[in-house]
Amino acid sequence: MIGIVIEALIKSALIAFVLLTAFAYLTFAERKIAALMQVRKGPNRVGPWGLLQPAADGIKLIFKEEVMPAGADKVLFFLAPILTMIPAIVIVAVIPLGPDVELFGRTIRLGITDLNVGLLYILAIASVAVYGIVLAGWSSANKYALLGGLRASAQMISYEIALGLSIIGPIMLAGTLSLQGIVQAQQSSTWYVLWQPLGAMIFLIAGLAELNRAPFDMPEAEQELTAGYFTEYSGMKFSLFFMGEYIKMVAVSAIATTLFFGGYLGPFVDKLPWLGILYFAIKTVGFLFLMIWIRLTLPRLRYDQLMAFGWKVLLPLALFNVVITAVVIVFVG
């Protein structure tokens, strides 16, 4: 019993640490990739190739003044960044990072846990994150923030439905809600992206919208709302929002990898289970790169176009996808 608790604690601490580091270097990677795509050099002053830049940024943010707007609702204003940050980390708990491995004579699951309702858990937790954004917009007593919060709530509601429907496909194919189960099901068939190309597409698009990443970054649209819902935030509270967004990026990439791209599967994983983590990381990083690439390439949609796209295009397509999948499963098997 104690062994299980210690194992869970160690794994949790390790994953939290990895995620926070990933966040820091994701911001760095984004800046470097942006620079390379935009014929500039990017950060190159702090440490070799600018590698210590995230550390410098972190130190700077910690020592920044925390400004509390006079008209703000203090409790909610304080709570909002936490509400955005926590769910982003918690989501990762159910994602399998590799097959079981033997270590110190124990069989250890790579991944914190394997809930049999893992996907439901993910959807439930992801929905909580929007409260952080809405509350931040509402409690700041700032009109830009308010508009950003309103946009966020409308956008999340519209896209969560398409997101939820797009993952029905893998569930039906695998016959389980457990992520570990879905990965293993892909071992016997093949990556679900081949069976569910439409579903994967919808998942990625809705995922971007859920993340508030470009071209769906309406709630924080710099050119329109200065910084949207976190206009009034500074210092560590600001960076918590930032952290939440980037960790969610990692989480969504990881989920996409798991559901559609075979998770940790790859050649020789059955012989060398540790390779699973490597495959998983490579696939996740690929999605992260895709997200950065999209941000650097596309202009932003307009708020009403975004809503129209969500309700009139994505939702029917997702429903269609579910129906087709069901029909094929019933008749073809």
Binding site: A34, M37, Q38, V39, R40, A214, P215, D217, A221, E222, Q223, R295, L296, T297, L298, P299, R300
Partner: peptide, 17 residues
């Protein structure tokens, strides 16, 4: 103009080049 449309600096920097 592209920046105002929400493109993240990329078109602007190529134009400036």
């Amino acid at each position: 103009l592209l920046n105002d449309l929400g493109a993240f600096q990329t078109p602007a920097l190529y134009a400036i080049r």
